[in-house]
């Protein structure tokens, strides 16, 4: 079967000290002058800048493929480059090199409630958030009642969301996103919202999503969720794909990795 997502040697370099990002063009006279003056100075000092402590390869030669209908989990320690990978696949940031191809419409959920405005009511935010996530107005209208019912906030639908409890806020935000209808869904660490009851509901909803044949790429720190929802998983470490394979094996390895670390620290 042909893959729906193809990622080939994707790399991303960030500048981690204050200053210009690598690859940023110089477009004002002042900077052009500053650059012309600084370049020989830097050479003279023997500081070649660029590589080294100023920059960081948040992703390095990441390659993988995802088949249609597959649910791929991505795990890894903090700073491994998981969010960077999803941002690139969502076209929010550009890779430094490499290439990715996606053979379907993409919807990304990198944060719950992006575009929510605290002063607007729940109703207004559903429309706004839907539009931000790429839904058409007709689609939102058609699903509005379902969204409100699922979030269980009927009574508060005309209250400004700044008066919601944080759980209510997250529920509403999650539900809008859960009603997206793309071929590829990209999700970053956002499923663990709300109270236990609502989490169950969310997982059920995610299960529906995967059952309907959509491809899902999701990052989580919950190994339980990976082994529950995914067939395959990727373990990322320091910007590289450290391991990929069946979800249970990756999760197993990941757990062992932490345990080894813990043992080392105790010794």
């Amino acid at each position: 079967m042909k893959p729906i997502i193809k990622v080939q040697n994707l790399s991303k370099k960030f500048r981690i000290t204050p200053g210009e990002q690598p690859g940023l063009q110089y477009d004002t006279l002042r900077e052009a002058i500053a650059k012309a003056v600084k370049a020989p100075l830097r050479r003279w000092r023997g500081n070649h800048g660029e590589e080294g402590k100023d920059t960081l390869w948040a992703l390095k030669d990441v390659s993988f493929e995802v088949l249609p209908g597959e649910v791929l989990g991505i795990i890894g320690p903090n700073g491994a480059g998981k969010s960077t990978l999803l941002s690139i696949l969502s076209r929010i940031i550009e890779p430094t090199s490499g290439r990715a191809e996606i053979y379907g419409r993409v919807a990304s959920l990198l944060e719950v409630g992006t575009g929510f405005h605290p002063d607007l009511s729940g109703r207004e935010n559903v429309y706004l958030n839907g539009a931000v996530l790429g839904m058409k107005r007709r689609e939102i209208e058609a699903r509005f009642d379902e969204i409100v019912a699922f979030a269980e906030i009927e009574r508060f639908i005309d209250t400004p969301v700044k008066r919601y409890s944080s759980g209510m806020y997250l529920r509403l935000a999650f539900v809008v996103a859960a009603h997206l209808d793309p071929e590829v869904l990209i999700v970053d660490e956002v499923l663990a919202v709300g109270d236990a009851g609502f989490q169950k509901k969310c997982l059920g909803k995610m299960d529906d999503v995967t059952r309907s044949g959509r491809t899902v790429l999701f990052v989580t720190h919950s190994v339980g969720m990976i082994s529950q929802m995914c067939e395959h998983a990727i373990l990322m470490k320091a910007g590289r794909v450290h391991m990929k394979g069946p979800a249970i094996e990756v999760v197993d390895y990941y757990n062992t990795m932490w345990n080894t670390l813990a043992e080392k620290r105790q010794a």
Binding site: K6, L10, G23, I88, L89, R91, E94, P95, T96, S97, G98, R99, A100, E101, I102, Y103, G104, R105, V106
Partner: peptide, 8 residues
């Protein structure tokens, strides 16, 4: 044909 191509 891919719907989205991501490159620098």
């Amino acid at each position: 044909k891919p719907v989205v191509v991501i490159e620098s």
